[in-house]
């Protein structure tokens, strides 16, 4: 992560030289430093840094999108007749995840569309998730695995 340190340093230098220590200016300096690093081939770990940061940004946007969809859908369930719901608990098989990955994954699941993580089996291989609407369990399973888990693993590994 030394490329990241370089980026922070460049942002700091930018803030010092423009003599303006506001967060906005620091962010501008960070972006300019990012562009400068793009043209600096000698910094070690540069390629990994760009890849990770790109994935982080797309992950954040994905998360915000899912969060908004989740709440619109939840609003729909709240004001529509109750028989629109078909709740159910489904087990989702997991890869070998570390503790922090598990926390992030279950938090994401809880905050996104009609899902709430309920129980993690003791061998940490299955996460049981409560869904607001279950039509096809296998489809939901592959959806969670394909979007959340895949993106998270891309980010952390």
């Amino acid at each position: 992560m030394s490329a990241f340190m370089w980026n922070i340093l460049l942002a700091f230098v930018w803030a010092v030289t423009t003599e303006l220590f506001t967060p906005t200016n620091f962010v501008i300096g960070f972006i300019i430093g990012y562009i400068v690093l793009w043209f600096a081939p000698s910094v070690e770990g540069r390629r990994a840094y760009f890849l990770k940061s790109w994935r982080l940004v797309t992950f954040l946007f994905f998360f915000i999108k899912e969060l908004v969809i989740a709440n619109v859908r939840m609003a729909y369930y709240t004001i529509s007749p109750l028989n629109r719901m078909k709740p159910g608990v489904i087990g989702i098989p997991l890869e070998d995840l570390t503790d922090s990955e598990l926390v992030v994954l279950s938090n994401l699941i809880t905050l996104t569309p009609g899902t709430l993580s309920v129980f993690l089996s003791q061998d940490r291989k299955t996460l049981y998730v409560h869904f607001m609407r279950v039509d096809d369990p296998d489809k939901l399973r592959s959806e969670i695995k394909g979007s959340f888990e895949r993106r998270l693993l891309e980010l952390t590994r």
């Binding site: 109750l82 028989n83 719901m85 078909k86 709740p87 159910g88 608990v89 489904i90 087990g91 309920v118 129980f119 089996s121 003791q122 061998d123 299955t126 049981y128 279950v134 369990p137």
Partner: peptide, 14 residues
Amino acid sequence: WSGTVIDELKDSPD
């Protein structure tokens, strides 16, 4: 809820 359609956790060994 009685409208719950599936509960995989209930039958699971763990």
